[in-house]
Simulated assay, not measured.
Amino acid sequence: MDDSTLSRLLREFGFSDKEIDIYLTVLDHGEAKASVVADDAGVSKRYVYSVSEELEERGFVSVNDHSVPTTVRAVPPQEVVDSLTEDVERMGPALEARYSRATPQTDQFEVIKSRVTVLKRATALIEAADEEVALSIPHAHLSEVADELRDAVSRGVLVLLVVTGADPGDDLGLEGVATVARAWQEPMPTMITVDRTRSLVAPPEMIARSNSGERAIAFTQRQLAPVLIGSFFGNYWPMAEEVYVAEAHDFPETYDDFRQAVLQATLKLRAGAELTATVRGRPVDADDGPDEITGRVVAVRQGLVEPANNSFPVEAALVVETGAGRYSVGGDGAFVEDYEAQSVVLDLAE
């Protein structure tokens, strides 16, 4: 490295031109009297004393003012580099945290630049969930959102979790952090959708490496969330292996989240229970019709737990036998079913 390049780099560390001259002079001598440094650098001896004290505070030189005459000694360059590197590494987390401060969640669309912010957003979304969380996350980072997931499960939120980079045969510690959990050894995007409205997606490299240069996207739009849900259930959920399913709820229970109702009905039916459902909603293809149906749950179609029997990835449906006939019931936005549910009350048949 030539002198001009070295001088430019020292300027980037805040050195003035005269400070550079003094420091390089000290380096050339290794150790020298202040008068020698002053003569070689073309400055006054008083200025050498002043600058040397500042350089000593910054770890570049040491000043021996206990002897006469005073001498200035260069700190070995490798020690200087090691100290600067340590300082930069210590600054990193604080700089990243300030850079990644949360923006208001009212933003409709946001580009996120750091892993810290991705995990912060995911945590905030889980904390705010009322009904449903669909989340994929590397198992190595699960602990950073595990407490929030447990809280969500305990307050009745449906938590559908895929942990990636994990062997399904290992003990992954997923009990209580999800309603249904799956594991997959392969990497996949970190994705979260909450209450079918708020979503975030980050590429695998962004979570794996803090300086990947990748970007994540967060959005709060009910029209776009189904696209992410479709990708979650269509591309990744079937590839992962089921490793945990929570126990079924006690009935009667009212569900505003239809996938939760389908899951709980599935678990009860497979345990041999007979169920009734009271569904409030509307017929899909009729302008008028009952806003409530009640009957026995005779079948489910779903891919939430194994064995799946859905005919397309996001299908979740109840089949309810009423006195007026048999209805297939879907959730919000149902289009292939007979009835679109707004809420479901499930109970054990008498």
Rank of each mutant, 00 (worst) to 15 (best):
A216F: 12
F219N: 13
A273P: 01
R198I: 02
Q185P: 05
A225K: 01
V243I: 06
R196Y: 01
E247I: 01
D250M: 03
P189L: 13
G213E: 00
A246H: 04
L263S: 07
V227M: 11
G165A: 13
R222Q: 13
Y255T: 07
G176N: 09
G165S: 14
S210K: 05
I229L: 14
T266P: 10
E242A: 05
T193H: 05
V194I: 02
G272I: 07
E214T: 00
A208C: 05
T193L: 00
A246R: 14
F233S: 03
E214S: 14
I217Q: 08
L200T: 05
E241S: 12
T193P: 02
D257W: 12
L263P: 08
A166W: 03
K268V: 00
Y244L: 02
T190N: 10
M191G: 05
A183T: 04
E253F: 04
D170Y: 07
T276V: 10
E175S: 15
E247A: 15
Y236N: 07
T276H: 05
A248L: 01
A271D: 14
Q185G: 15
G176Q: 07
E247P: 15
H249N: 15
W237E: 09
A246T: 03
I207M: 07
G176L: 06
E253A: 13
L263G: 11
I192P: 07
S212T: 00
A216I: 06
I207D: 08
P226I: 07
V243C: 02
R198S: 12
A181G: 13
Q185T: 15
F233I: 03
A273C: 01
E274V: 05
G173W: 00
V245C: 12
E186K: 13
Q185I: 14
V262G: 02
V262C: 01
V194Q: 03
V177W: 12
G272Q: 10
I192T: 06
Q260C: 14
D195K: 12
R196Q: 04
K268H: 11
N211D: 11
A202E: 10
R215M: 05
R270S: 05
P226K: 14
L200P: 04
P203S: 14
E241C: 02
T276E: 12
G176W: 02
V262Q: 05
S231M: 06
D195H: 04
V245A: 14
T197L: 09
I229K: 08
F232L: 01
G169W: 15
A271R: 15
A202F: 10
M188T: 08
D250S: 07
A218F: 09
R182E: 09
D171I: 08
S210E: 12
W184V: 08
M239I: 06
I229P: 00
W184D: 15
N235A: 04
R182N: 10
T197G: 11
P189A: 11
L275N: 04
S212W: 00
P187C: 13
D170K: 03
G165K: 15
E186A: 13
S212M: 03
D256P: 00
L275I: 08
T179V: 14
A246G: 04
V245P: 10
P189I: 13
M239C: 01
M206A: 06
Q260G: 12
Q260M: 14
